[in-house]
Simulated scan of single mutants.
Amino acid sequence: WVVERTISWLHNFRRLRIRFERLAFIHEAFLTIACCIICWRQLKSHSVNAS
């Protein structure tokens, strides 16, 4: 379930939904940025709820 949810979150990023980049390292860079944004949003929501 965790993996399916994470893939669902990644598909919210338009650039990752369809692979526009031909080079793998560029696609991987966008994937890394998307993962960072997802983690930041989760941490931000948990810190607000903890306060």
Results as ranks from 00 to 15, higher is better:
residue 1 W to Q: 08
residue 2 V to Y: 08
residue 2 V to P: 01
residue 3 V to K: 14
residue 3 V to R: 15
residue 3 V to C: 02
residue 3 V to T: 11
residue 5 R to F: 07
residue 5 R to I: 10
residue 5 R to E: 11
residue 6 T to Y: 11
residue 6 T to M: 06
residue 6 T to A: 07
residue 6 T to Q: 04
residue 7 I to G: 04
residue 8 S to K: 13
residue 8 S to M: 08
residue 8 S to L: 08
residue 9 W to N: 12
residue 9 W to P: 00
residue 9 W to M: 10
residue 10 L to E: 01
residue 10 L to P: 01
residue 10 L to H: 06
residue 11 H to L: 14
residue 11 H to C: 12
residue 12 N to Q: 14
residue 12 N to H: 13
residue 12 N to V: 00
residue 12 N to L: 12
residue 12 N to D: 13
residue 13 F to L: 01
residue 13 F to R: 04
residue 14 R to D: 12
residue 15 R to K: 12
residue 15 R to A: 07
residue 15 R to L: 09
residue 15 R to P: 06
residue 16 L to G: 02
residue 16 L to V: 03
residue 16 L to T: 02
residue 16 L to I: 06
residue 17 R to Q: 11
residue 17 R to I: 01
residue 17 R to D: 08
residue 18 I to G: 01
residue 19 R to P: 00
residue 19 R to V: 14
residue 20 F to N: 10
residue 20 F to D: 12
residue 21 E to Y: 13
residue 22 R to S: 15
residue 23 L to Y: 13
residue 23 L to E: 15
residue 24 A to T: 13
residue 24 A to I: 11
residue 24 A to C: 10
residue 25 F to P: 00
residue 25 F to G: 00
residue 25 F to Q: 07
residue 26 I to A: 13
residue 26 I to G: 00
residue 27 H to E: 15
residue 27 H to A: 15
residue 27 H to M: 03
residue 28 E to Y: 05
residue 28 E to G: 02
residue 28 E to T: 09
residue 29 A to I: 01
residue 30 F to R: 10
residue 30 F to C: 07
residue 30 F to M: 09
residue 30 F to P: 00
residue 31 L to I: 00
residue 32 T to R: 12
residue 33 I to H: 02
residue 33 I to T: 08
residue 33 I to N: 08
residue 33 I to D: 05
residue 33 I to F: 05
residue 33 I to C: 06
residue 34 A to I: 02
residue 34 A to H: 02
residue 34 A to L: 02
residue 34 A to M: 02
residue 35 C to N: 08
residue 35 C to I: 13
residue 35 C to W: 00
residue 35 C to Y: 01
residue 36 C to M: 05
residue 36 C to L: 10
residue 36 C to E: 03
residue 36 C to K: 06
residue 37 I to C: 01
residue 38 I to T: 03
residue 38 I to L: 05
residue 38 I to D: 06
residue 39 C to H: 04
residue 39 C to I: 10
residue 39 C to N: 04
residue 39 C to D: 10
residue 39 C to E: 07
residue 39 C to Y: 02
residue 40 W to N: 06
residue 40 W to G: 00
residue 42 Q to D: 04
residue 42 Q to N: 05
residue 42 Q to C: 07
residue 42 Q to E: 11
residue 42 Q to V: 10
residue 43 L to I: 05
residue 43 L to D: 11
residue 43 L to R: 08
residue 43 L to W: 04
residue 44 K to H: 11
residue 44 K to Q: 11
residue 45 S to V: 09
residue 45 S to N: 07
residue 45 S to K: 13
residue 46 H to C: 04
residue 46 H to R: 07
residue 47 S to N: 01
residue 47 S to T: 05
residue 47 S to M: 05
residue 48 V to P: 00
residue 48 V to T: 06
residue 48 V to E: 09
residue 49 N to F: 02
residue 49 N to S: 11
residue 49 N to T: 06
residue 49 N to A: 14
residue 49 N to L: 09
residue 50 A to N: 07
residue 51 S to N: 04
residue 51 S to F: 01
residue 51 S to Q: 05
